[in-house]
Design a protein around this nucleic acid. Structure first.
Lengths: 204, 204
DNA sequence: TAAGATAGTAATTGATTACTTACTTTAGGG
DNA sequence: CCCTAAAGTAAGTAATCAATTACTATCTTA
């Protein structure tokens, strides 16, 4: 058992805070997470958090920055080595699913943030991330169409929406079942229907 | 301009409350809706709500009951007249999209409720509804497979997950764009990819 | 039309929240 | 080793929230 030192340098404390929030988001509605919840999870008093973050919103902001960076870089790395666009799409899909299975709080926070009214900074971070994500999808989908792997008449915008929706559907399913493990099991089947929907039809 | 009578019979007041909550959920995060928000929207004082509902949670409960009943019955009616399973699935899809476009607060509330920790009554209502929804999907998908319209090797559970996920993806897209009108425009394209993914391949 | 029942107001309560302040503990370099 | 800056504590504040209370206005009908 690794014991927890009471004093941590500011940067490590901030990292630990981000981790605690993601952890909590896996257990309860993100908007129900209080600063006391976070502090208790870290073995700190509530006020101590405000040594490292000026506001609660800035904590959220740090969490979302960390999450979006990690997700994008992991998904990028997974798609990199693949030789065909479809293989790259599948690798992206499965990596995204892996990420979500390991950190079930992440999609909850992302979706929850999108629901907030107005134009908050955390919300903008999520919008920027999904924009980058969609860019990668578009590139792969266009490449797939160009080299005849995907249906020539495919609308890439629509295909990108459905890609993200497929993941979202699996997340919703796991919320319904109250069990994150299902998501990994069902992911390959979902992707294979999706692939069938976008790929060029092979000769009979 | 229809004027608002100050006194309403209890049942009408409860109906108006449900409407106000759905209305508000289209504008802000459902968990940020306060009883004061609801009352203000109705032109009432906050305390007056508690003449008709014992708790705030019971308001939520009424909203979710109303929503789930309406959604299911509308979707059922749309699928009823169709002669082929695929046509019925498409009618369900489009009707669901119509419903969501008219009441953008609805998917927010449903998804938000699923995120809550533990087993609350409102959460159970949503779970029951999705269960019934999935039942209808299963029946149609099985029928489609049986009569050769859908791919013989299709996993109907997976296909049902992706059906709901497709809608969820469109909802997410509308949250990103901050514009609900997109959802209706993109829906046919999304469904056509989905259909391509599940249908039996025609002879060349 | 008087009277009881129903629906509303206005003010208040206790709990909870994000954030502050005054003080204490710990780590680490000269 | 000690002194200072960083990190944490404990108690408190103002604001906000759901829910309550004491009272008033408005319907219904006998």
């Amino acid at each position: 058992m690794r014991r927890r030192p009471k004093h941590l340098p500011a940067e490590e404390r901030r990292a630990a805070t981000v981790e605690a929030v993601i952890d909590l988001a896996g257990e309860k509605n993100p908007s129900d997470i209080t600063t006391s919840d976070i502090a208790k999870r870290m073995g700190l008093t509530q006020g101590a958090l405000f040594r490292h973050f000026p506001t609660k919103d800035s904590i959220l902001q740090a969490v979302l920055s960390w999450v979006t960076e990690r997700l994008l870089s992991r998904v990028d790395r997974a798609a990199e080595g693949m030789q065909s666009p479809i293989a790259a799409l599948e690798a992206m899909f499965m990596t995204h699913i892996d990420f979500v299975s390991e950190q079930p709080g992440v999609p909850r926070m992302l979706f929850g943030e999108l629901q907030r009214a107005g134009e908050t900074l955390p919300k903008r971070i999520v919008q920027t991330m999904t924009h980058h994500y969609a860019e990668r999808l578009h590139r792969l989908l266009r490449a797939g169409v160009a080299q005849g792997e995907l249906d020539a008449t495919l609308d890439v915008d629509t295909a990108a929406v459905l890609f993200i929706g497929s993941i979202q559907g699996l997340v919703m399913q796991s919320l319904l079942a109250g069990d994150v493990s299902h998501i990994r099991r069902d992911a390959p089947g979902v992707f294979s229907i999706y692939r069938r929907g976008i790929e060029a039809r092979h000769e009979l």
